[in-house]
């Protein structure tokens, strides 16, 4: 794995559709109860400012290898390829840091050992 790479997620637009979780399970052939990325949910809760909080965030687990085999072949990590909202980016940490600047409610995951 190239150690300079990471996974960026603009979670403001994550709809919680489970595509990343299933894309990952299928490509890594993970059995029931095993995940390379897990969808976390916060809310629904009415905030003190009157707005609603309902936020989804996919969290890569220790099984995530950024789809090293796929990336070597020239493919995107399967979650990035299939993400229905198109809010995941796999790139160098340097580029992702720049991207994060322009996109509020985003995170960068560096899952390497």
């Amino acid at each position: 794995m190239n150690n300079d790479y990471g996974l960026f997620i603009n979670y403001e637009y994550c709809t919680g559709c489970h595509t990343c979780e299933v894309a990952c399970k299928k490509v890594h052939d993970l059995p029931e109860g095993q995940y390379g990325i897990v969808l976390c949910e916060d809310g629904p809760r009415k905030n003190i400012n009157g707005k609603w909080e309902l936020t989804y965030m996919p969290l890569p687990t220790h099984l995530c290898d950024f789809c090293a085999d796929r990336v070597k072949e020239g493919r995107l990590p399967s979650c990035v390829h299939h993400c229905q909202s198109g809010i995941m980016v796999y790139d160098t940490l340097e580029n992702l840091a720049k991207l994060a600047k322009d996109h509020p409610r985003s995170v960068i995951f560096n899952t390497q050992e």
């Binding site: 559709c17 595509t19 894309a23 399967s78």
Partner: peptide, 24 residues
């Protein structure tokens, strides 16, 4: 054996939902 979203189909541009990913 495997299904991927077709990036060259402008209808879905590569994306897929969990049900199609589970087609195999």
């Amino acid at each position: 054996e495997r299904v991927e979203g077709d990036p060259n189909q402008p209808y879905n541009r590569g994306r897929l939902c969990m049900r199609c990913l589970n087609l195999p």
